[in-house]
Design a protein around this nucleic acid. Structure first.
Lengths: 241, 241
DNA sequence: CGCACTGTTGATTCCTATCAAGTATGGTGG
DNA sequence: CCACCATACTTGATAGGAATCAACAGTGCG
């Protein structure tokens, strides 16, 4: 079972992949050197400005991606323009909905980001031949499902205050998984995005930030930088006892 | 690739499985006769009264299940008792969260139901050896993820009226996939459950039912039986143009 | 400097929750 | 058989939280 990944010696791993931080966290970690080489022939890295769209709701999926750096938001819009963010993906997550030609959601960079694209048909073929890869994608789907259901509780049953606190807690715990100190971070989303994620309006989000600040649950600098002096206290405000 | 399933002749398929309607729809459809026989040695069918718990939030997962008949609700509860239904599963869905020992949600029968249990370790072992089976579970996870994200839009951005109409539309399209006529059906959930699914109170749900009834979008008999004269009209009330 | 954009704060409205009462149905036991 | 009770649902009155409408502050940019 350990025949894959002799890459301790980086034997035949493509150069770009060798330098890639997402290689072990993303889907690439389960691939052999040959498979990586094959996939690499068709893959391409792209830098995305904040707000750049990776794919639009209803469009045909041509690429899957790995997020190398940054945060990508997944959104759904109603015909009249109402919008809901249904997921946030952080590096080095896989981005895409396997086995479906048409995307039910749109994906766009929430922050300045970098992604690595693979053509859909290439990866789909690779998945068919590589149970390890399907397993990896399955795990990712299950993780996203768990997160989606957690968020359903937040959307359906929490107050505005609890929603905002839940969001801050989510960001604190996801923005930099490497870091030991989660008590200080930059928000990857604008107030408008946060509102769309929480099912609130911008104004309500802003008011709740102010309230949390006045109660010394958080400190805010330059609108985007947040410090949490007591993470447990934030968690209590989020309704997660 | 077509060596599996010589079951056109029902050669060596276990008797219970042969009579099982869920065999093709559930996970069992991808298994060979031998695998079915093996799995069948450890599986057991159970009848569930409405309200019976399959597994509780935080409990250790010992079984996966196939839903043979009925509707199962997946719920999350907060420490103070607030509750949210995060998913509805209909026969012949697979029920369970692969690869996790502890359940993050509870599952209980919404209607009188019947399920077929397999021990977790038996199925986990089978999954490792059977890429087809993992693929099937992967597909199921992705389906649930799509549904969860659809519902997030409903929870976050729709009015009470739209939520109730969305719920009715969901049930109409899921309760009996065989049936051509989706315009008449029994609700599998009580008003309290519907409220927990929609992030509303019982009273609000009741009022919206009354309103939709008075606007002739639906008819209701005996509280549970619903008739929809014009499905497109219901869809418009649900905000799905 | 003026303009666009993002975010905050205030006043008011409106939708849904809450509190409360009432109806309908079914089961139980005297 | 019927009085009694529990449960599920509906309806009404009121309260409260978030949305809406509006004004204003801070920042970056051409």
């Amino acid at each position: 079972m350990e025949i894959r990944r002799q890459d301790i010696h980086n034997s035949d791993i493509p150069l770009v992949c060798r330098a890639c931080e997402a290689r072990h966290g993303g889907v690439c970690g389960v691939l052999t050197a040959e498979q990586l080489t094959e996939l690499n022939k068709h893959s391409s890295r792209h830098r995305l400005d904040s707000g750049a769209e990776v794919i639009g709701q209803g469009e045909t999926v041509v690429n899957y991606s790995n997020i190398m750096r940054g945060v990508v938001k997944l959104t759904k819009v109603m015909a009249d323009g109402r919008q809901q963010i249904v997921g946030l993906q952080f590096a080095p997550d896989f981005l895409g909905r396997p086995f479906l030609a048409e995307s039910a959601i749109s994906a766009e960079a929430a922050t300045e980001s970098e992604i690595c694209n693979f053509p859909r048909n290439v990866l789909d073929r690779l998945v068919k031949r590589t149970p390890e890869l399907e397993h990896r994608l399955h795990q990712q789907a299950l993780k996203e499902l768990d997160e989606a259901r957690d968020w359903m509780l937040t959307l359906g049953r929490k107050s505005a205050q609890e929603k905002v606190a839940s969001f801050l807690y989510l960001i604190a715990t996801h923005i930099d998984p490497e870091s030991v100190d989660m008590s200080s971070f930059d928000l990857p989303l604008s107030r408008a995005d946060i509102a769309d994620f929480l099912g609130l309006t911008i104004e309500t989000v802003s008011r709740q930030f102010t309230k949390l600040r006045k109660e010394n649950v958080i400190r805010i600098e330059n609108n985007r930088h947040v410090t949490v002096p007591d993470m447990d206290r934030l968690m209590r405000h989020a309704g997660n006892d």
